[in-house]
Amino acid sequence: MIVHENEPITLIGGAEITTQTLNRARALAPNVVAADGGADAALVNDLIPQAVIGDFDSLSDWARGQLPEDSLHPIPEQDSTDFDKCLRNIAAPLVIGIGFSGARLDHQLAAYNSLVRHPHRRCILLGREELVFLAPPELRLDLPEGCEMSLFPMGAVEGLSDGLKYPISGLNFAPDGRVGTSNHVTGPVSLSMTAPKMLVILPEAALEVAAAALLAARAGWPGA
């Protein structure tokens, strides 16, 4: 394990980020780690990441020159993305990933794939308009009535819900079958899932609620 922290971590990727997004993430997760070229964004914002992890194909020479040598952790294999390399090498109660959405759809989809491949790592991917995370076995979210909430399966999964306009009980979800997009909150939301396959998609304004809910979720998927 390259990084081991008892507090949440902000993980910065190579896609464009805003100062506002960075500040919101760091308010919840002050420790900073960068995925490859995300180190450039960290330095531009006057932050020195405690670790930089990736294959280093996008880390600039300028950034490399600003970083302590012992903070650089190259992983040269090309069978996984920089986000995946980071997620499997960070042990923390929660990772808030920024700079992993909005630039390229293929990179974004690969990041979602990593969330499912490492279900024991609790991680929120925060974009400009939405946030995405993998649902733990049980989750409670105190969201305002009318808040949009989508559930998207990355594999076969079933679940139970309270507080949603369209309950999910009795439904068989699959990426090539039933999905749960465009649902709405009617009250405090409770979810339980049969497998680590369901992505939860919320407006970016729900970051603080989502982070608190994931940190409070008692049960984790095997491997935690």
Rank of each mutant, 00 (worst) to 15 (best):
D79S: 13
D79M: 05
D79G: 14
D79E: 14
D79Y: 03
D79Q: 11
D79V: 05
S80T: 15
T81H: 11
T81I: 07
D82C: 13
F83N: 11
D84S: 14
D84Q: 14
D84Y: 14
K85S: 10
K85L: 09
K85A: 03
C86F: 07
R88A: 05
R88L: 04
R88G: 03
N89K: 02
N89R: 03
N89H: 14
I90R: 00
A91N: 13
A91Y: 05
A91M: 10
A92E: 08
A92W: 08
A92C: 09
A92G: 10
A92S: 12
P93M: 08
P93A: 02
L94N: 06
L94R: 01
V95N: 03
V95K: 01
I96F: 06
I96C: 06
G97D: 07
G97M: 01
G97L: 04
G97C: 10
G97Y: 02
I98P: 00
G99C: 03
F100H: 09
F100Y: 06
F100L: 04
S101Y: 01
S101H: 01
G102N: 08
G102S: 03
G102W: 02
A103K: 10
L105C: 01
D106G: 03
Q108K: 00
Q108V: 07
L109S: 00
L109E: 07
L109P: 02
A110P: 04
A111F: 06
A111M: 15
A111T: 15
A111H: 10
Y112S: 07
Y112G: 06
N113G: 13
L115G: 14
R117S: 06
R117G: 00
H118I: 05
P119R: 01
P119V: 11
H120S: 13
H120Q: 15
R121E: 10
R121Q: 10
R121M: 04
R122M: 05
R122Q: 01
R122P: 04
I124L: 03
L125A: 08
G127W: 01
R128C: 10
R128W: 00
R128I: 09
E129Y: 09
E129R: 02
E130I: 13
L131P: 03
L131I: 03
V132A: 12
V132F: 09
V132C: 12
V132P: 00
V132W: 10
V132Q: 07
F133D: 02
F133N: 07
F133I: 12
L134E: 12
A135F: 15
P136E: 14
P136A: 11
P137Q: 10
E138H: 15
E138K: 13
E138T: 15
E138N: 15
E138L: 11
L139I: 12
L139N: 08
L139W: 07
L139Y: 11
L139T: 09
R140N: 11
R140F: 13
L141R: 04
L143V: 09
P144H: 12
P144M: 08
P144K: 06
